[in-house]
Amino acid sequence: MAQYTLSEENVRTIPDGWFQACIDRMYDEDNTLQAILSLEVKVLQPFHNGSISADEAAYSITRPITDYSVPKLNTYSDGSRALAQLWALLIEALIEWPSTQTPPLVALLIQIKKAPGHIHRREARDEEEKPLCWDDLPYFTRVWSDNHWMSPGQIARRCPDDATLRRARDQYIKQQDVEAQIVAAQLFTQGPLAYPRALQYVVQALEWTPGSDDHRRAPDDALADEQIRLDFLIPASGRWITHCGQRLYNSLHSNDIPGWDPRDIPRSPVSFGNPHERWTFWVERLLKLLKEEQDDELKEAAESAVRYMRTIANGQNL
Rank of each mutant, 00 (worst) to 15 (best):
L89S: 11
S268L: 06
Q101E: 03
L37S: 12
D30Q: 07
A313K: 11
W97G: 01
Q190A: 11
L289S: 05
L83D: 14
W260N: 01
P116I: 01
L290W: 01
E303L: 13
V143C: 14
S254Y: 05
E40V: 04
E297C: 04
S51T: 12
P235E: 01
I95E: 02
R229K: 10
P138Q: 15
H215F: 11
Q246H: 05
P116F: 05
V203L: 01
Q45T: 12
Q34D: 04
E56D: 15
L318P: 00
G17C: 04
A54S: 15
P266D: 02
Y68N: 13
M150Y: 14
Q85E: 12
A198Q: 02
A184F: 10
D177P: 00
A93L: 13
K174W: 00
G79R: 11
R197G: 09
S60P: 02
S51H: 10
E277K: 01
K174S: 05
K174N: 04
H118V: 03
L286Y: 03
F188R: 11
A58M: 14
P196N: 12
L289P: 01
L206Y: 06
L290C: 15
E29A: 13
E9N: 12
M309C: 02
A82C: 12
I112L: 02
L73H: 10
S237F: 05
L39I: 07
S60D: 12
Y249G: 09
A82P: 08
E129C: 06
Q294W: 01
P258G: 08
L86G: 10
R278K: 14
R125T: 08
R239Y: 04
A35V: 06
P71R: 10
G50N: 08
L233Q: 06
R239E: 06
M1L: 08
S51K: 13
G50D: 13
G17L: 09
R278V: 07
L73Q: 04
Y59M: 14
E127D: 13
L199P: 06
A168P: 05
D28N: 14
D24H: 11
N74F: 15
S251H: 11
E284W: 07
L286S: 07
F188Q: 06
L94F: 10
R217P: 01
G238H: 01
L287T: 07
E303V: 00
G245C: 10
Y27A: 15
R247V: 08
V43S: 08
L248G: 09
R63N: 13
E226K: 13
W240A: 05
R167D: 11
D67P: 02
S271M: 09
K288C: 09
Q190L: 03
L108F: 01
I265Q: 06
Y195E: 06
E9T: 00
T66E: 11
A21M: 02
W97H: 08
L6G: 00
N74L: 15
T311D: 10
I65C: 08
N10A: 11
